[in-house]
Design a protein around this nucleic acid. Sequence first.
RNA 1: GUGCCCGUAGCUCAAUGGAUAGAGCAUCAGCCUUCUAAGCUGAGGGUUACUGGUUCGAGUCCAGUCGGGCGCACCA
Length: 552
Amino acid sequence: MHEFFLPVIQRALSLASITTDKPIQTEQPSDKKFGDFSTNIALLAAKECKRNPRELAREIIAHLEFPPDTISKIEVAGAGFINFYLTPLFIMRSVQQVLQEGESYGNGCNGKGQKAIVEYVSANPTGPLTIGRGRGGVLGDCIANLFATQGFEVTREYYFNDAGRQMQILGESVRYRYLERCGREIEFPATHYQGEYIREIAESIYNEKGSSLAEQSEVLIFKKSAEEIIFSSIRKTLERLSIRHDSFFNEHKLYIASDENPSANDAVIEALNAAGFIGNYDGATWFLTTKLGQEKDKVLIKSTGEPSYRLPDIAYHITKFERNYSMIVNVFGADHIDEYPDVIEALKILGYDTQRIKVAINQFVTTTVDGQTLKMSTRKGNADLLDDLIDDVGADATRLFFIMRSKDSHLNFDVELAKKQSKDNPVFYLQYAHARICSLLRMAIQEKEFDPASITEHHLLQLLDSPTELQLGFALLDYPDMIKTSLRMLEPQKMVEYLHSLAELFHKFYQECPILKAEPDISKARLFLSLATRQVLRNGFRILGVSAPDSM
RNA sequence: GUGCCCGUAGCUCAAUGGAUAGAGCAUCAGCCUUCUAAGCUGAGGGUUACUGGUUCGAGUCCAGUCGGGCGCACCA
């Protein structure tokens, strides 16, 4: 709808010779008595023009030219707001539009011809996925879906490292448990992975090889099988939540040099050195971030000769630029908050357009059962597994709960609520609206010979004019703006909230307006309105990755 | 100590710098001989942690104070 008003207001401003560098904003007033849409442009422009805002607003109104039958009233209100009221005809014509566009309703073309990369999950294969990772995974998946609706060619990437020290410790952990399984006396180090899954991996190796590896002091074989087993378990968990990736980027690539070219890591060092940001002291190679006003320099190459995680991270991001992505989105948890500023700084120094990079950081998750907060303990590997949560509440609830709060807020995952089958549980509330419409349509098709595909009858929608019907119709035409807002803010939570209010409006409509029992033309019109509502619910569910059940 | 996030109804959370701060749960009062009551309608409930500032206008922006979370490795 914003696109509907924008050009008209722009034209009016220029006709009235009003110049302002403020962007034209439209919004939906909180109260319907202020219209369906309003703009504050007169308030914003008044200062620059040194004019009275209300007077300015009247002048703008005089130059507004809308297509016929779209706007029923325009008024100046308050300090200088311009409020617009849509005609019922306009609203219901837009509902016809929903039916015509179907699955593609809400899609845009701002991203056409552009590539976007969204990186999420990116857990190293050191253990099963935790609940915290799940939140980021679902967030990333939804953001990727949002980009796709705007025509971006989206790559969903998983970045991992199977070579570092943590993996070494993983291999050793498995070896210890294996030796234990073989009956050897061992002392399991406190620094190593305590999780039960380590025993399971050791067990499966033992089952396959017996004690033949007991004299093997090389951990490689233990590491390899651990990685394999863990990675497949991670992928299985992600699959349960319909979280997909189409690219797995192994950090190892960044270490490989060819005859002609240095490794990506070395290339970064060279380039930063040429820019004067590399220093060598204490036996290590440093990124001189103190030159940028930071308190400490950051190690890029440790005194052992191995790169620290920062170096490959920079090199990795360069590949994203080299792969020509115009939008680069990284999703990660609050514990990595300090990670990206250095990467951004380095990229800036190397001349990359860091404006293309967006970082979505999600805060932590705590789970509560019966009002009791469960303490998470990753080290012990208990009570924090994503798989257990999915077992408990199901995939739909898991996904929706992860994104129904703003990513900046700590998430309180109420396990009892997620299992409840009533309106308290937002998952059921949303899905119930969809199922209700399906049931209605089934009945209409069977008993009233209603034809959902009868496009020639869509104009019947224009018969509807009650406040409830118009409100529902109005909510439907708001959907495309909702997608854009969610995307701009990298915040699927907006979409959840919108769908919740849409479901609410539908339930109200269902309650107030007889559908099958109304006289034939009205009945059809209401069925079309229901059909359009179902379409928007479905489209929204698809972005959120929540299923749309036909019956419940 | 320091960087980031948060502090809004009893609870869980909303509110692109806009108009009288909104939902849900919980509490109370209503609505099923009628298309799914897994639903709907209504009521009560607030010094937006605190103090200043910027602005025509601040829950939102800035400074400070107090509380909570997460980081602050030659781990990733």
